[in-house]
Amino acid sequence: MSIEAKDITKKFGHFTALDHVDLKIPSGELVALLGPSGSGKTTLLRIIAGLEFADSGTILFDGEDTTHRNARDRRVGFVFQHYALFRHMTVFENIAFGLRVRPRNLRPSKEQIHAKVHELLRLIQLKNLSGRYPSQLSGGQRQRVALARALAVEPSVLLLDEPFGSLDAKVRLELRRWLRQLHDEVHITSVFVTHDQEEALEVSDRVAVMKEGRIEQVGTPDDVYHRPITPFVYNFLGNVNLFHGRIDEETPIHEGAAGEPVYVRPHLLEIHRQPNGGGHFRATIKHINSAGPLVKVEALSEWGDPVQVELSQEKFRELQLAKEDTVFIIPKELKVFQKKVV
């Protein structure tokens, strides 16, 4: 089922959570709502779910207006950030809940419910834990039960609020891939909220980057990463060095000169021992962190801006860098955003 949010505005008191937001989600896609906290992404998700209602604007499911339907009638599967499992019910009862509360004429038989729950337990690989209570499960297991519970009612849309937010890094990575696989199997239109750019880029078909109640950019992970249309998106999707200066032939980034801000990703800066050619600036190395696949170097530019550089271990060994060394840095790719003429 496709989802469309048209001109959605939502205020909490004086705080504008969503400011005229438009978003189209094609059927069968897995879309990430990415943004810092307070950007309105969870509010948008809850409005799509019918757990919250917009002050103005419409929500369309497959072109049909569902703006005034509540969560109960929208047939959405919602996975809460803290799982919201029913604590007094076993795993089995949790998953069966959505089927058991159906009106009598729509309720599946006991055997059908049993079969359905066991099918889902197999899917989430928790078959032998069906009699456990939520408090007896680990975070990752709870998350999967929450997902199975949402899927049990065969929703037309699956909505996930920070689904991996409260898990530790290892489990997070594992569950993330699992969700991607699951989506490739079930092909249910899914929207998930996250503040982790890596997660959004890795899992989703498309990413909607949000800032202060507005959507900054929507596109494939490739699009938003390589072709950001605003400084915010560029900034949010990876580490970045920001210089205020002008670009010219000799020295690419000038001290103190007025002009557009210039952005460079840390891995797109090259360190040299000798000035070779031009297009460089001078910097002093302040800190080196060589634990990890890349070596992260913090330096101070000749005009006093902090600069982050990432280079391979190989290159690092070759250069034999040390603290307080003076080096020459050449940006390989600069990003300049033209100021919008108002």
């Binding site: 779910a49 019918g50 757990l51 509540n70 969560a71 109960r72 047939r75 959405v76 599967g77 919602f78 809460f80 803290h82 919201a84 499992l85 029913f86 604590r87 809940f97 959505g98 509360v101 159906r102 519970r149 949402a150 049990a152 009612v153």
Partner: peptide, 16 residues
């Protein structure tokens, strides 16, 4: 009220 919200989203009525 997260559990209540979860129940509603799963199709339960207010009394349920």
């Amino acid at each position: 009220q997260e559990e209540e919200e979860a129940a509603l989203a799963l199709g339960a009525s207010g009394w349920q």
